[in-house]
Design a protein around this nucleic acid. Structure first.
Lengths: 231, 231
DNA sequence: CCATGTGAATGTTTTCACAGCT
DNA sequence: AGCTGTGAAAACATTCACATGG
């Protein structure tokens, strides 16, 4: 997934400088995007090796980045390590989850219940149940009324009202390109703040809405550039 | 899709400097990753507005980037525009497709035929049939032998031999994290050159193999950082 | 005029390298 | 001795702004 318009960090953390004055620390979005990988890999290291303590270089090695990058990234948020020792793995997981606000459950609206939408709904991978699909919408009459896991599929006409009612802040767009902007507009009308966009197109949204594009086809199409000639 | 280890451009284009000496123009991977979006959006503009000619600013506006970026990106590969006029949309599509080597069909190996793998196999979105799933593998006895679109699902034991036989260069990993590296190793043993990785982990590969990670969960987990407080 | 293509400037991200703490 | 946290440097990416040419 490669977002072309990089959403910038709004909602900047404020920090106190040594001199005591308050300044805004604008945390790069590229850093925010890496944090989930740190959490996931820390969890893996805990489960596999049972290690309590992890150094930035150990974590870096497992992820395939540099230790300096991890230290720099974490330094945006505070000081979590012990010199000479490393990081307490379990505590670091908690800290990052707190930073990312993954220490609570978020309800999600899924729009589009075709092949892709169905796969997303069935997917168990939103693992520690941080995310819960609270409502599903489709425009297809045949699908409306059908229910999955106790969730009745609603008409896309109800998107705005329904998500506002439920207070859902995160939406997943799994509809064809032609309807994606219309769906995005409806979600925004309902007060959405974040969109995971599977449609292969750019969504027009204000800066207050975070968008992440999931684009496996684009990823494939860019890899062919590097393939060897001569076959 | 967010690759953390950015694969660097190998296989650099060589160009002739004005003075006549040959130098390597290393094209940034971030540029390569944008090209599919340019093609896709150009196609959209052609279909929707029927415009023959497109300026960098028009294309940029449709994508949500700057015109300068598009001009700079294209300049890595040549001079495709007409001053005062813009780009011939149809020709630019062809040129970029040629650069990306999307002017041919690529056979793909899919590993993992669970929920996700099935969704990928059924997915019609590898649209202009640039990619064709040539073989599918799974480790589950029950699934082996099953056939989809005339493709018989094979045992994962056969990965290396089978893809070498067929000359497949692109693999899709749609297996759980625990098996992902094993599958990647098998694919590499069979001579794979590019991997689209849906497993939420870092794959250890030599630089000669391009990897793109597809990570919708990570994308979601990073968006929560920006959600409004207060409820 | 209009819009490309590109040096130069600017902005962003990563890495280096080491003082300082355990 | 080992590893963090971070200034400073380097590498990388984007934007500015304009000469150039249809």
């Amino acid at each position: 997934m490669q977002t072309i318009r990089p959403p910038r960090a709004r909602d900047a953390q404020s920090r106190i400088s040594p001199a005591g004055s308050v300044y805004e620390a604008e945390i790069p979005d590229v850093v925010i995007r890496r944090l989930p990988i740190y959490v996931r890999t820390l969890q893996l290291l805990i489960d596999q090796t049972g290690s309590e303590s992890v150094s930035s270089d150990q974590l870096a090695e497992a992820i395939g980045v540099s230790g300096a990058q991890i230290r720099r990234d974490l330094s945006y948020f505070g000081r979590f390590g012990k010199q000479g020792k490393g990081y307490d793995a379990r505590r670091l997981v908690e800290e990052i989850n707190r930073i990312l606000r993954l220490d609570q459950t978020w309800e999600v609206a899924l729009v589009g219940f075709g092949n892709l939408g169905r796969a997303i709904a069935q997917y168990g991978g939103f693992v520690p149940s941080t995310f819960r699909i609270a409502c599903i919408f489709d425009r297809n009459e045949d699908r409306i009324g059908e229910s999955v896991d106790g969730i009745v599929i609603q008409s896309d006409v109800d998107i705005a009202e329904s998500i506002r009612q439920l207070g859902v802040k995160i939406g997943i767009i799994a509809v064809p390109q032609a309807s994606a902007q219309i769906v995005a507009d409806a979600l925004m009308e309902g007060g959405i703040e974040a969109i995971l966009n599977y449609a292969p197109c750019h969504l027009r949204t204000p800066n207050s809405v975070t968008v992440r594009d999931v684009d496996p086809v684009g990823a494939m199409q860019s890899m062919t550039y590097y393939l060897s000639t001569g076959d």
